[in-house]
Design a protein around this nucleic acid. Structure first.
Ligand SMILES: [Zn+2]
Ligand SMILES: [Zn+2]
Ligand SMILES: [Zn+2]
Ligand SMILES: [Zn+2]
Lengths: 138, 138
DNA sequence: ATTGCATATGTTATGGTGTTACACAATAAA
DNA sequence: TTTATTGTGTAACACCATAACATATGCAAT
């Protein structure tokens, strides 16, 4: 598996920028169709225009897909490029997502899998719970 | 979050048994629609019949949903009832899934989240890679 | 037995998510 | 200019999941 660096990215195309900006402006994960709806006034009319932009942004490591939500977020952790496995903490109350890094998690999961003779290529780790802000408010 | 025991389950209904048996017989995760197709000869005709059975089986802890595949597997680990977080190792070559338990993983993820003032209620951990059998075959 | 309640079922229609196929445009080598 | 690569636009389709409504079944408590 290859870790990607966020430096020296090629300039994004128009559609890619529109989608990326939509995600960076959002305070919560967006589905592809939510992105589509938000960009209709900017000329985006079909799902494929969004999905193609997302594919590229995912490949560049600029956005991530949250499997448990069928949604996407902009990368928000500078350590992300140096790691293979990031953890997403999803608040069920306000829908905010924190992208967390952990030095030992990858080794931990790799060792667990190795005990079953399994070689890990990629990991999805998504936590559901309550964020600090929402816990304070409660 | 509540851990469930697999003992003393209520008897499954007809549809629940059909769906559960389909999953236990399968060698790989099944989508709801794949289950539906396999059960048409047994009188299952609509997606809801499958989804309702799956909801109950999920609640009983007899099956699990794999978020990254939009698919379902029968529980295959006896330690599952005693834990909140299980790990699914999905072979990208043969599609087999191993359900792994780890005593320390839950604490590990909890601590990582706590550093961000996040309280974990549930975790999704899905690994993609190559199983031992497929590695031997290669 | 009758009533009442909770759970399960059957069916239709609808909505949300993601891809295939094909045509065309822009960009960058060669 | 020719060629190859990448990006774009559109329509149609396939897959995943739920809403709404009607009916049936099992199991109390009277
Ligand atoms: Zn990231
Ligand atoms: Zn929150
Ligand atoms: Zn299990
Ligand atoms: Zn395999």
């Amino acid at each position: 598996m290859t870790a990607h660096s966020h430096t020296d990215q090629p300039a994004l195309t128009k559609n890619q920028s529109l989608v990326y900006d939509a995600l960076t402006d959002a305070k919560a994960p967006l589905s592809a169709y939510a992105i589509l709806d938000g960009l209709r006034e900017h000329g985006i009319r079909a799902p494929l225009q969004v999905y193609r932009a997302l594919d590229k942004l995912l490949e560049l490591g600029l956005v991530h897909r949250l499997e448990s939500l069928n949604s996407f977020v902009a990368c928000s952790n500078s350590e992300c490029g140096a790691r293979e496995t990031m953890v997403f903490a999803i608040c069920v109350k306000c829908n905010k997502v924190s992208e967390l890094a952990d030095d030992r998690l990858e080794a931990h999961l790799g060792a667990l899998a190795a005990a079953d003779h399994f070689t890990v290529h990629a990991a999805t780790v998504e936590l559901r719970g309550i964020c600090g802000q929402c816990r304070s408010d409660a």
